[in-house]
Amino acid sequence: MNTTFSTTGLAQTAASTRRVFSPFRRYWGAFQEWRKERRKRQRERAELYRLNDWELMDMGMTRGEIEYVVSNRCTDPRRVRSTLR
């Protein structure tokens, strides 16, 4: 009885498995990043809602702008408002 195994079959299986799981890893990584950002936005939103109106005014923000600021962190709401005038 001959018990030799071919290593090329194993290499082909590993390569095809990598090709199948590569998109899954990318999607899983993107999902994890989205969850991390979502938790961060929730914490920011909670911290801003804990402030009173005077503290928000000191920062140049109203309570009605909290959702906008949290969802658009890269945009300064004061600059947007000044360009609309």
Rank of each mutant, 00 (worst) to 15 (best):
Y27T: 09
G29M: 06
R79Y: 07
W28D: 11
R19Q: 13
S82A: 14
L48V: 04
R18V: 06
N52D: 15
E44T: 11
R79L: 15
R63Q: 05
V70L: 00
M57F: 10
E55M: 12
S6C: 06
F31N: 11
T75K: 14
R79E: 15
R19M: 10
M1A: 08
S22P: 00
W28M: 08
G9P: 00
V69E: 01
W34Y: 10
K40A: 11
K36A: 13
E47P: 09
R85V: 13
T4M: 05
V20S: 04
T83I: 14
E33W: 02
W34D: 12
E55S: 13
W28T: 07
Y49D: 05
T17Q: 10
R43G: 11
D58T: 09
T17N: 07
L56M: 09
F24G: 06
D53K: 03
F21G: 05
A46K: 15
D53Q: 06
L51A: 07
S71M: 09
V70G: 04
E47T: 09
N72S: 07
W34M: 12
N52C: 11
R78W: 01
R35Y: 03
G60M: 01
R18A: 12
Y49M: 12
T13D: 06
N2W: 03
Q12T: 03
L56K: 02
L84H: 11
R38G: 12
V80K: 15
Y49W: 11
D58H: 11
D58E: 14
E65P: 02
M61W: 01
R79N: 12
R43A: 14
R18K: 09
R81Q: 15
E37K: 13
R63V: 05
T83K: 15
R43N: 09
G9M: 04
T13E: 11
R85N: 14
A14L: 14
L84T: 07
S22R: 12
R43D: 13
E67I: 02
R41F: 01
S16Q: 10
A46D: 12
A14P: 04
P23L: 08
K40L: 10
W54A: 14
N52M: 04
P23N: 08
R79P: 03
Y27E: 13
V80E: 13
K40E: 13
R18F: 10
W34C: 10
K36F: 06
R38D: 15
F24K: 10
R18W: 06
R63S: 04
A46F: 05
D53L: 04
T3G: 01
R25V: 08
R79D: 13
A11L: 12
V69G: 00
C74D: 10
E37T: 05
W54V: 13
